[in-house]
């Protein structure tokens, strides 16, 4: 290390190519001061990120055992509704039979479910955020047997895909895992 830097003369006029001892000291002090400021600022900024209790609520577990074929439930996840629908054979077939060219946001049904029976989508219309109808058997389900958003008339099919109306994309599929055949964890 000592070889790399030419020994600076003590005191008067060091104008070497590498700079003076003072420059070196100034540079290292500034560097440490910058690190110091970062070290002080980071805890404040990070304290504004979601706290541990918020992150803990970031996952929701859903028990599927009580849901019958053709039935749907709504659960809260991260402050939003999530539709969990147990689809019957006709609904699955209808979803699979749709040609992708008819879809505004083309996506095959197989890519939107992990197990054919269970459709898990975020129940927020991708147009302007209303909660579409279709969870209850008495609700309007739109022209495609899925969901109907009453705010501006978006129709979703049995795979939660947009078929008619102003919504630009399909209902979002959140990250979820089957922790057992009768339970999923969302998020």
């Amino acid at each position: 290390m000592g070889d790399a830097v030419a020994p600076a003369g003590h005191g008067a006029g060091d104008h070497e190519a590498g700079g003076t001892r003072r420059d070196f000291l100034g540079l290292t002090t500034t560097a440490f001061a910058a690190l110091g400021v970062g070290a002080v600022v980071w805890p404040f900024i990070h304290s504004m990120n979601p706290a541990r209790d918020v992150l803990a609520l970031a996952s929701t577990e859903v028990d599927l055992s009580k849901i019958e074929v053709g039935q749907a439930v709504t659960v809260m996840w991260r402050g939003k509704p999530v539709f969990v629908r147990r689809r019957g054979a006709e609904e699955i077939t209808a979803a699979r039979a749709t040609p992708l060219s008819e879809l505004k946001d083309p996506a095959p049904d197989q890519g939107r479910v992990q197990r054919d029976e269970w459709l898990v989508v975020v129940g927020v219309c991708t147009h302007l955020g209303c909660v579409p109808l279709g969870q209850k058997p008495t609700d309007a389900r739109g022209n495609f047997g899925g969901w109907f958003c009453p705010c501006h008339g978006s129709h979703y099919d049995t795979s939660g895909r947009i078929r008619l109306g102003p919504a630009p994309t399909n209902l979002a599929v959140p990250e979820y895992t089957f922790t057992s055949p009768t339970q999923i964890r969302i998020g």
Partner: peptide
């Protein structure tokens, strides 16, 4: 107590 336990760096602040 939430600040002390759950908020990031809450205990420090």
């Amino acid at each position: 107590e939430r600040i002390m336990r759950d908020v990031n760096f809450g205990w420090l602040i």
